[in-house]
Structure formats: C-alpha cells, structure tokens
Design a protein around this nucleic acid. Structure first.
Lengths: 204, 204
DNA sequence: ACAAACCGTTGATGATTTTAAACACCCAAG
DNA sequence: CTTGGGTGTTTAAAATCATCAACGGTTTGT
C-alpha cells in the first residue's frame, strides 16, 4: 500500500498510520548506520547536535525528510560533513584488484586508454593508462565534464590546453584541473606519449 | 540585527519580516550558481524538478532550508546528485595547474613522493608520483585509512599486499582497492620502482 | 507604444517537519 | 520486586517548509 506525496513514494506499513519516504539515497538507514558506527545513541547524538532524540528517531525511520539545516546540525554532532555523508558508500565491500586482467582498452587508433579496475562497481575514481600516438588530438571542440582530473606524463610530451592557458608537458611533469573548464589534449611530438591520469567522479 | 532560532543564526534584514539562515555551506548561493552554470531559469528548473519556482527562489535566498527530499527533487532537475552538490567547491572551480612547479616532495630516503597540485585547496584527489628504492617497504603494521586508491606501475616491480592477498606487479600492471583494508607496499626487486597513484578523498 | 513572454520575488495558506513530553521496553543495582 | 537509568518510539502542539497566485520589472516582437 503506498501513496505518492510530494513527488516521492510513501509507503503505508500499517493501515492506521505511519508511512515511509523512500529516496534513492536512504537517508534514514544511512544516518542510523553512521551513528552506530560511531557508537552513539540517539539521545547522545541529539544532545551533541542540539536537536531532540525524537527527531533522530523519525529521520532514521524515514518518517520525515529532514531539512538540510537539520541534517547538518545532526551530522555536526557526529561530526561528519554533508559532503561525506552523501558521498559515503555504505555497502562498499572490501574489494581488491590486482594486475592487468581488468585493464580494459577503450581508446581509438590514435589514443589507447586502459581503465584500471573497470569492472569494479561504484568506483570513486577513474584511473587511466593513456597512450597518445604522435599528433593525436582530442579535438578543437574541447572537452567539458564534471569533476576534477589530473595526471603525470611518463613518456613523450603532451600539449594540454585548459581554459585560456596552454602548455607542453615534459616527462615527469603533471597537471590538475577542474574538468568543467574546457580542455584539450594533443601530442605535438614525434614520439608516442604515455600518461597516467585520474579523474573523479569516474568518467568511465 | 539577528536572532538564534533552531540553532542557526538567522538575520533580520528588515524589521518587519524576513531573515536568512546562515550555514557553513551556503546552500542558496550554491544552488543559484549551479543552476546558472547550467543555464536554467528558476521556472525552468522548477518545471523539470516538479516543484514551484517560488520555492527555488526562497531556497536561493536562504529564506528556508529545504528538506533533503526537496533538495533532491530540485537537483534531479539539473541533474546533479546530492553528493556532487555538497562536494562541489564553488569558489575554486576554474583553476589550472601545469608542470612541475607544484610537485611537492614528501617522502623519505627510501620512498620519494611527489604530490601533484599540492597547493590546490580542497582537492578531490591526491595524485602521487612515487619512487620506491630497492627493498623499500611501508611496514608490517599495514596502512589503513578511509577512501579508495589505485595506481599503475611504470617501472620496476612492486609487491602489494591488501587484506589477505598479495601480488608482485610488473610494469604496466595496476591495482585498485578500498583503503580501509589493511595494505602494504614493498619493492622486492633490485631496481627502483616507480608508480603513479591516486587516492580519494585526498590523503595528503 | 504596447502586448506578450519571460524573469525573480512575495504573502497567505496548507502541508510537513520539529519539539516537548510522554510511553514502552530492557537491564543492572539496591 | 522495585528503582533508576538506559534504549528507541510515539503523540499533539509549535515552528518551518512548500504551494498557489499574485506582483513588479525587463526583454522581445509587433
């Protein structure tokens, strides 16, 4: 039995009363897990956070969706930032990846991209081993996406243009920028250019 | 003129009525910036998100602190995740780093660590250029910290132990794991070992 | 100049959250 | 057994949020 209120599913679990808000991120379960991880009771956290214990109970049951300021107050009592709270992946199982078996090749003729740990779900980063043929170029229409990226040139040279600035990087040199700024990679040399890069959130 | 209500500062800006909630994260300004970055009007975003334009106006003025579910609805209209929203650092979006001038050396005799874009505040990742002398070892007491890390071996060989598993990585091979699992790096070879790694959230 | 269409803001009203104060349960100490 | 302190939960009342429908301002096209 459910009802749509406020654009979200709300489930009745008993006919006489309460319902639960279901979001893609389960704030309630998340908060409960974090609180218990820190060994705090609802009352203790409430006291630290300056809210009532009842409210924490209601939030953890998903009976209400707290305001951002309330959630912030609660998290301050842990303490944990909003960013950490929403970024934290609860079920992230300990998972290891070794070797070359999961290095997936993605690139074209001119650019070869090997993605580290390609099959790992919900990675926090993309780590790439990139090889650019001489003259290879990501194109004039510049790349733009969310997140941040950086890397180190291992071999060869790379001309990197970000926003207004442009520079030719030598082996051992590195770069880092916000990916939302339009950018372009070009191999200006006669040699192949090899780069190891990382980007977050994952692009691939 | 201000008053403390609900544990937050609320400023009166006219004696007859409205006030603003001030939080350490300025949700209002943040939302406005993000919305404009995507070239959306309040009404257009409201329509996509299934909320009223007035509400977006109030949120952007910090006249109200939206519930998490409301904020999620609004961000879905952009679209952007809650995690991204709170992680995004507005002030330092367009910032580029090139070259070798900001490669800070951190390591010891046996291990040299060069951190990319060391002076950039609030990085989302640490990218490191690491060199391990023959026999170098991060020690038996294993490393444990939050986040995820991965990397690629560029030169030499590296024995990596994560949890129960252990493996010697050759040049071109890579690794990726959750940093909370105890881990250890050791260079078993006679040659120096060079690695480029990334970790998030930043360890350095 | 005027209307039409857009923008962001506002006030009154209805809906939801938050509080304060119980309630029910469990466990250890007296 | 009873008391006191610890859980998490629930309720009605107070506070806050979200909506609807206006409002004033700017831009666009006729």
């Amino acid at each position: 039995m459910f009802k749509i209120i406020n654009g979200l599913f709300k489930f009745f679990w008993r006919e006489d009363w309460p319902w639960a808000v279901i979001m893609s991120i389960d704030v309630g379960a998340h908060l409960r897990a974090v609180r218990q991880m820190y060994g705090l009771s609802q009352r203790e956290l409430a006291k630290r956070a300056g809210v009532t214990n009842g409210m924490i109970s209601l939030i953890e049951q998903n009976r209400v969706s707290p305001s951002v300021s309330s959630l912030k107050k609660v998290l301050d009592g842990i303490p944990m930032s909003l960013s950490e709270f929403f970024t934290l992946d609860l079920a992230q199982a300990p998972q290891v990846f070794f070797g070359s078996d999961e290095l997936t090749n993605l690139g074209s003729d001119e650019v070869s991209l090997r993605l580290v740990a390609a099959r790992r779900p919900n990675r926090a980063m993309s780590i790439l081993h990139e090889c650019y043929a001489p003259g290879a170029d990501t194109g004039e229409e510049m790349l733009t996406h969310k997140g941040e990226e950086g890397g180190v040139v291992v071999r060869g040279t790379m001309e990197l243009t970000v926003g207004g600035s442009s520079r030719v990087l030598q082996p051992g040199e590195a770069y880092y920028f916000s990916s939302s700024v339009p950018h372009r990679f070009r191999n200006p040399g006669r040699e192949e250019c090899e780069i190891i890069s990382a980007s977050t959130p994952p692009t691939f």
